[in-house]
Each structure stands twice: as C-alpha cells, then as structure tokens.
C-alpha cells in the first residue's frame, strides 16, 4: 500500500471506529482526542486487517510509542516490509 492509501484507510478508521474526524498528521492523538491505550489496542486489530496478517507481540509493543497519525503511517509502512 502507498502512504496515500494508508492515510485514507486510517482516516476512515478514525472516523468510523473512534469518532475522530480528520486528525492532523502531527497532532498528539492522546492529548487532542483522548485516544488512549485501549484505543491503540483496538487500532492494532484494524491494522492487522490492512496488512492481511497477524502482528507479533513484539511488533505490537513497538506500536505503543505511537503518538500521531504520521507515526501510525510510518509504522504500517514498516510492518509492510517485514
């Protein structure tokens, strides 16, 4: 998937799953939208659907430092290559 495709998929997930409309690329999701650790776990299951594979426990733990939409895009790009 291209970065643009990932971006569009994520915007759709944020809107439908988390009721967050068009978050800015570098906005802190926790501070701005109450996106917390529970949401992060829910998001990972959505990312597994994008990627078409299960993430390992180690890969999931890497996602716990994510703070922005840009971080998520880069995480997905990285997971695509592994």
């Amino acid at each position: 998937m291209s970065r643009q495709t990932i971006h569009e998929l994520l915007l759709d997930v944020f809107k439908t799953r988390f009721e967050i409309d068009n978050p800015g690329l570098d906005e802190n999701l926790r501070e701005t939208y109450d996106f917390d650790s529970i949401d992060a776990i829910e998001l990972l299951s959505e990312l597994e659907t994008f990627l078409g594979r299960e993430l390992t426990q180690d890969e999931k733990k890497q996602a716990m430092d994510i703070r922005t939409l840009r971080d998520i895009e880069e995480y997905v790009l990285r997971m695509q290559q592994t």
Partner: peptide, 10 residues
C-alpha cells in the same frame, strides 16, 4: 483469542 476486543473485559 485474536478477536477479543480491548474493551470487552472492561
């Protein structure tokens, strides 16, 4: 197991 949601227990 993979299908259990993060909030299901809560």
């Amino acid at each position: 197991l993979r299908r259990i949601g993060a909030t299901d227990y809560l």
